[in-house]
Amino acid sequence: MGRYIGGRVVSMLVTFLIIASLTFFLMKLLPGTPFNNQEKMSESQIQQMNEKYGLNDPVPVQYVTYMTNLFKGDLGVSFQQDGRSVTTIIGERIGPSAYLGFQSLLIGTIFGLLLGIIAALKHNTFLDYGSMIIAVLGISIPSFVIAGMMQYWVGVKWGMLPVAYWEGFEYTIMPTIAIAAAVTATIARFMRTEMLEVLGQDYITTAKAKGLTSTAVVIKHTIRNASIPIITIMGPMVVALMTGTLVIEQIFVIPGLGEKFVSSIMTNDFPIIMGTTLFFSILFIVVILVVDVLYGIVDPRIRLAGGK
């Protein structure tokens, strides 16, 4: 197991290097410089700034400088917020994003699994159709529509919850629901299919033939096996939630990473773009590794294939 993870870490580093390089050159293709959208600056001031941040150097030189700093753990400083390091900014912004992502994932997963399991066990009944209608709605209605409707009805008309900002638990409820809807729907649909598949397996008949109660058959033999593929979709979903909340962060004015990411692209704040992208990449790579390790824990057949 240790050797397996060791090997994976090496390939993760390679992946990371490739992502860092690609992002760097792609970013250089963005039109404009970080400073030309600030009308108050004169031409010479812009030149001065470019000189200061090394933007006049040839791109390969900039690349080497950046990568060297990166290995020292230095992500640079923001061009827009003078002198503040990228690490500090990400550190400040990650809190609300992570909280929101985690809470939505938790709620979405719990409800998704429940809906999926109920739909499968009550296959072809009213409960099944009901759950799947909810699931289809959850997938097809974009989160910003749900967010907008909630803000209008729940927030403004009924005044039950705050419409925006990030100042306490009640501020998290509406954004969480807006994000969790799609998570619930995706997981519910997956879980239903997997449950139906597993329920048709021979070993379920074996379990029934042992005289186990239907509850025991479902809990011990069905749900565990049906949830294995769910782990696969959970990985990318975790990252998508971290990044994908950016629309919701904008709508509810949440000071999260996604909101910062969007604004940094608008203003050509290169270090922030790089820093955030790399941060998301690391997150993604690590989550994939975690998923693979989890897979091995849940499914003994893979444990063997991975080697000891």
């Binding site: 008949t205 294995i228 499914d299």
Partner: peptide
């Protein structure tokens, strides 16, 4: 399972893999 039990056709699929 206690008074009457059953053996199935395909041993490759009649055991729970996990």
């Amino acid at each position: 399972g206690s008074e009457i039990s059953m053996i199935f056709q395909d041993p490759m699929t009649s055991l729970n893999p996990t």
